[in-house]
Design a protein around this nucleic acid. Structure first.
Length: 503
RNA sequence: GGCCCCUUCGUCUAACGGCUAGGACGCGAGAUUUUCAUUCUCGAAAUAGGGGUUCGAUUCCCCUAGGGGCUGCCA
């Protein structure tokens, strides 16, 4: 099997595109096939510098290794459509020669005017089709001489597919089953633009054929134009070994109607792109899943389940597991709503099951950003204490910064409720006793504090919360004796004394 | 407007035409815990509506409603 992911470098790859890439990758790998990356940069007006690099980086971050592509190379290159211009021209000229396509000289302005005129008359939208084409300026309505002289004079032209009425087009979609179209409903699609570039439709069909693509997995928005693509395969005589089609359901907004857009990310403060993107303006710049603190494994797992399920109750999958379990007939038909809470849950699962060494490596750069450079061994303990209570990587810092920095303020409510000034000497004595301990471990300190409580007839609830606030400033977090061990004797005692003297 | 696709708890979804429609996220309650979190237990929560076909429809067919996509010299 040969599958391809064929994005257009018009901006950052959004999450729907990532899922399409993932499904293509999974199916390719499942069958020991090839995953091809093809850059569809046929629209130079929408080309965005850096977008191709972004796509590459995103795929790499997610671990979707490209077997053939613009950087990797391969036997069917080049893999950038802009570098294949001449190929398309040759093929489309062949279609013209066979009377399956024709030259059209109508300018964009003329077509615009035509559309407006139809609208003003209250007619259904103008369609450049078999009914209308003889009213337009093209090699079908003009004489051969007129056509020739127009072309020789350098008049700009497009090449359109000649769609004749009376043909039945049957799409055997691997997800949706049989979908039928009638050719008289279809327009004469432009195959070749006046600027010498092919349109998506031409380039896509020619490339999929030439690159021996066996399965086309793409978004549902392509389903209507698939009829044209089949007509093209037919015109080229390639219908016999046409790829199988599978049209994916769309990813919908978390709330409200419509498909997920970059606006939703901005509005809801959630990532909708894999990586950050620096656009022209603030409005055009986004943080991605990576910058939010997601693990790529979690993103892959989450995305895989947006529109697909394995048919079992298992939800946590490695990429290898996904490859083994994946199949097209388990893909749903309905649009899937983007559920950020579920994404967070997946990430939490991955963090919890990561070992401390792995986490420490992940967290070190985040702490470094805040000016802290901890020993690996210490960092591992730090991660161990916090990993059960975070779902994103940066939360290690947010929830554990008191382990690296001095406490600035104490939770006043706890102090007010629990602190009795007359017990100050008692608490200072506790601190002093703890300082005398030889081995300052979580076990030994806990044992000592409990014994101390008993000796002085204090309840645990009268001591523990105050210790916590004294050490961390907050009322929540890992076990206080674990915290003490991690802080070390000197720092712990100092914090206790400072706090008890200032409460 | 035309064409096409879709419709099971709030969300992601499972259920050869046949058990009390299952699981997960989220939500609520409880247990555990010095706290928070984790973990565990329990709970509320769905077949869009109407017709058929059938001994029997979530499942098959039709209609309606709703949602989505396409209708560019964009992909």
């Amino acid at each position: 099997m040969r599958l391809r992911f064929a994005p257009s470098p018009t901006g950052p790859l959004h999450i729907g595109g990532v899922r399409t890439a993932l499904y293509n990758y999974l199916l390719a790998k499942k069958t020991g096939g090839t995953f091809v990356l093809r850059i569809e940069d046929t629209d130079q007006t929408r080309y965005v510098a850096g977008a191709e690099k972004y796509i590459l980086e995103a795929l790499q971050w997610l671990g979707l290794q490209v077997d053939e592509g613009p950087e990797t190379g391969g036997p069917y290159g080049p893999y950038r459509q802009s570098e294949r211009k001449d190929i398309y021209r040759a093929y489309v000229e062949e279609l013209v020669a066979q009377d399956k396509a024709y030259y059209a000289f109508d300018s964009a302005e003329e077509l615009d005017a035509q559309r407006r005129a139809f609208q003003e008359k209250g007619l259904p939208p103008f369609k450049y089709d078999a009914k209308q084409r003889m009213q337009m300026r093209n090699s079908l309505s003009l004489s051969a001489n007129e056509t020739r002289s127009l072309i020789e004079s350098g008049a700009p032209y497009t090449i359109r597919l000649k769609v004749d009425p009376g043909e039945e087009i049957l799409i055997n979609d691997r997800i949706r089953g049989e979908v039928r179209f009638k050719s008289e409903e279809l327009d004469d699609k432009i195959l070749f633009k006046a600027d010498g570039m092919p349109t998506y439709h031409l380039a896509n069909v020619v490339d999929d054929h030439l690159m021996k693509i066996t399965h086309v997995i793409r978004g549902e928005e392509w389903l209507p134009s698939t009829a044209h693509h089949i007509l093209l395969y037919r015109a080229f005589g390639w219908e016999e070994d046409m790829p199988a089609f599978a049209h994916l359901p769309l990813i919908l907004k978390p709330t409200g109607k419509g498909k997920l857009s970059k606006r939703d990310g901005l509005k809801l403060g959630i990532p909708v792109f894999p990586l950050s993107w620096k656009g022209e303006s603030e409005e055009e710049s986004f943080k991605g899943f990576r910058e939010f603190g997601f693990d790529p494994r979690a993103v892959v797992n989450f995305l895989a389940f947006l529109g697909w399920n394995p048919g079992t109750e298992q939800e946590i999958f490695t990429i290898e597991g996904l490859i083994a379990a994946f199949s097209l007939d388990k893909i749903g038909k309905a649009g899937a709503r983007f559920d950020y809470d579920k994404a967070l849950w997946f990430n939490q699962q991955y963090i919890q099951s990561s070992d401390d060494t792995q986490l420490a490596k992940q967290i070190a750069p985040i702490l470094a950003k805040h000016g802290h450079h901890a020993e690996p061994a210490w960092l591992e303990k730090f991660c161990h204490l916090l990993k059960e209570r975070v779902s994103l990587y940066p939360e290690f810092w947010e929830q554990g910064k008191y382990l690296l920095e001095a406490v600035r303020e104490y939770d006043s409510k706890t102090v007010r409720k629990k602190w009795k000034p007359e017990r100050r000497p008692l608490f200072l004595k506790l601190a002093e006793e703890l300082e005398q301990l030889d081995n300052f471990t979580a076990e030994s300190t806990e044992q000592h504090v409990k014994a101390f409580a008993e000796r002085h007839e204090l309840k645990i609830g009268e001591i523990f919360p105050l210790l916590r606030v004294a050490l961390t400033g907050t009322t929540r977090g890992p076990g206080i004796f674990d915290i003490m061990e991690l802080l070390g004797k000197k720092e712990s005692i100092q914090r206790l004394q400072t706090a008890f003297n200032s409460f």
